[in-house]
């Protein structure tokens, strides 16, 4: 183990980890937005929205995220979409994870007992009121853990943007492996940073989940 080397290069890895964190946060926000819209579409009363939602989920879950990213970043300019690598990474990964989150959110909503909707509709609440005051508060609690699984996958998924040369953790590890020929050290360094990010996020989600359960 080359400890000197690790001590020499670790500041660059810390910088890269910060990029990974930024990517993760922005991707998660975009993913949640796409997931909420997707779930609303899939549960819509209107067939056309349901079809759009189903096609979105099927296409984006049915093809590799890496290919989606390449289509956006390398193919985008051909159809008039010019993005830098970081922007393309956030949008590509966010829309991709949004398809998975759509299913998570929809799953939590349909897991709420039909009787809950029936009881609130019986009292005279409208479809939207029943969703807003009765179903969603309960579904929100159910979806914290599975969304946590999506977010865990998303953090690891940000590594894909190394393939479009965003200088985040995996790209940095790859570059230093190439220049130092020390794959184990570089893996250990970047792997540790990924684990810290993932562990901290996991703790945050567990905390949210506990808090939601108490009330």
């Amino acid at each position: 183990m080359d400890v000197d080397l690790i001590l020499r290069v670790y500041p660059f890895f810390l910088q890269a980890a910060w990029v990974t964190i930024q990517l993760s946060v922005l991707t998660a926000v975009l993913g949640l937005a796409c997931g909420s819209l997707g779930a609303a579409a899939r549960l819509s009363r209107l067939r056309i929205f349901r079809i759009i939602g189903a096609v979105y989920v099927s296409l984006f879950r049915g093809t590799p995220a890496l290919i989606q990213l390449f289509i956006l970043y390398f193919g985008g300019p051909q159809i008039g979409i010019q993005l830098d690598a970081f922007e393309a990474g956030v949008i590509g990964l966010g829309v991709n994870i949004g398809a998975y989150m759509t299913e998570t959110i929809r799953g939590a909503i349909i897991a709420i007992d039909r009787g809950q909707t029936e009881a609130s509709r019986t009292l005279g609440l409208s479809r939207w009121q029943s969703m807003r005051y009765v179903v969603l508060p309960q579904a929100a609690r159910l979806m914290i853990r599975p969304l946590g699984v999506n977010i865990n996958a998303l953090i690891k998924g940000t590594a894909l943007v190394a393939a479009i040369s965003v200088v985040e953790l995996t790209y940095t590890a790859q570059r230093y492996i190439g220049s130092t020929y020390k794959p184990f050290e570089m893996f250990l360094l970047s792997g540790t940073l990924y684990m810290i990010i993932i562990y901290a996020t996991g703790r945050g989600i567990a905390w949210l989940d506990r808090r939601a359960r108490i009330t």
């Binding site: 007992d113 009787g115 809950q116 029936e118 009881a119 609130s120 509709r121 019986t122 009292l123 005279g124 609440l125 409208s126 005051y133 009765v134 508060p137 309960q138 609690r141 009330t215």
Partner: peptide, 29 residues
């Protein structure tokens, strides 16, 4: 939505809202 306000219904499985207190269950509508 209007006419349902005039028709109370009680279900076999109660269908109370588990995330709300008894008070909130009653005052929501």
């Amino acid at each position: 939505n209007q006419v349902r306000q005039d028709i109370g219904m009680v279900f076999q499985h109660f269908n109370l809202f588990p995330h709300l207190t008894v008070r909130e269950n009653i005052t929501l509508a």
